[in-house]
Design a protein around this nucleic acid. Structure first.
Lengths: 242, 242
DNA sequence: GTTGTATTTTTGATTAATCAAAATCGCCGT
DNA sequence: ACGGCGATTTTGATTAATCAAAAATACAAC
């Protein structure tokens, strides 16, 4: 009776899906859950009813799902495994940050507590994974910080990329090429509402443009302390230099 | 259509089961397969028929199963993943050799080719895992060496433990305590057929007794080269000293 | 208010893997 | 050669997860 991979995935997606909801909303519509999981709507409904039965989610027919405390705890441990594994694959195994997601997606369901603790220890109890996503604590605690995005942050100030909220390898490689990995510094030169784009200036003073959709996937830390602490060119979690 | 974990497990157990068959036999009885997998006999029959349909095994009703060439190749890649993972957990993650089996049992079904290649490379393309079991090659080739056991090897000569054919943690810890890990030297002082036991002398000249059942699980290399090459006290694949 | 549309739920089936228990088979021993 | 017993196969059901398509529902628009 450990939860099946399927159950773990549902809980994980409910957690992530609720996080992406517009401010104020707390119920994830079934359609969104179904498409995040790549299953038919009816499948999600059936499964969610079962999860509600087990006390892992609250389910309001026609309105959506939300995690209970127990469900949140479980989702957090899955996310913890996923993110620790991703960071491990980058830092220890020397894999690229854009190629670790799929392996992590599978490994998150099978690594034992003993092994995940070993990984956590080996990485020095890290707080975030290579994409800047927070790593939940051992007891299922998640500290989600709030960030601006390149679409909402003040123009002209140097900000530090904190998190990239898209796992697509193509996008991640693009982000890397432009020096936008978590930990790297950038500033918004201008923002053009009409053109739906932002003008950016990287640490090396090169400028480039990003569409609004892409810009909104780059979460940034606007506090002065962050800018001060940031390494000018190299991001965190880079592959081990030798 | 990658093979399911279940299929991989069936193929793996057919491979291992056939290996344990008395000399001459090549067909693994369904009962043995079923109990190795922990399923009811009928379940094994049903599944094996399906595997035969897919051309992975030869199935002779009432006689047993055997792998086809295709089945052998698949079994080898599963075994390769399992054994590389076990060695990785010991060498890189610093886990004990008696606690890695269960993790490997799960991981063997989910590690990607890319990751397993990375592990293989990181370990320097090892030939055997911590228990001395051979690691199949990338292309599904398995080189099984033939070994004597402490029950059949010559009395009085120094031999090198090559392989321990039992994954039980309790037994493995016992083996370790007595300096019988793969790579370590031992010699048989005497063998008593009636008492069903062997008198052993370890590298440090301590003597102890092993029952026949246990002795037969310790495969040894009796060639003089092996004895010459062996480190007197430390076995291969020991945890990284620091 | 009625109606339309998009979303959600229901329904009925399917697939993979399993079990328990009944039926069957192979073969050993006298 | 035959009876019986242990191993194997069959049978009938079950569980988890899924889909397609039909039915129901919510809500916004008119």
């Amino acid at each position: 009776m450990p939860p099946s991979s399927t159950v773990e995935n549902y809980l994980k997606e409910v957690y992530l899906g609720v996080g992406r909801l517009p401010a104020g909303a707390t119920l994830l519509p079934m359609g969104q859950l179904a498409s995040a999981l790549g299953v038919a709507p009816g499948t999600a409904t059936t499964m969610v009813k079962a999860l509600a039965e087990s006390g892992l989610v609250d389910y309001e027919p026609y309105n959506g799902v939300r995690l209970t405390a127990a469900g949140t705890r479980l989702a957090a441990t899955v996310l913890r495994r996923h993110r620790l594994v991703e960071l491990f694959l980058v830092q220890v195994m020397g894999m690229r940050w854009d190629e670790v997601h799929d392996d992590a997606e599978h490994l998150e369901h099978v690594v034992s507590d003993r092994l995940i603790d070993r990984i956590d220890e080996m990485l020095g109890h890290p707080e975030t994974d290579p994409h800047g996503d927070p790593i939940p604590g051992k007891e299922g605690t998640i500290r989600e910080r709030h960030f601006e995005t390149l679409l909402t942050c003040p123009v002209g100030t140097r900000v530090v990329v904190a998190r990239v909220s898209d796992q697509d390898p193509v996008f991640l490689r693009f982000v890397e090429r432009h020096g936008l990995k978590p930990g790297q510094v950038v500033s918004v030169d201008a923002r053009d509402e009409v053109a739906d784009a932002v003008q950016l200036r990287g640490a090396d003073d090169t400028t480039f443009t990003l569409g609004a959709r892409a810009a909104s996937k780059l979460l940034v830390d606007v506090t002065p302390e962050a800018a001060a602490a940031a390494t000018p060119s190299a991001g965190r979690n880079a592959a081990p230099r030798r």
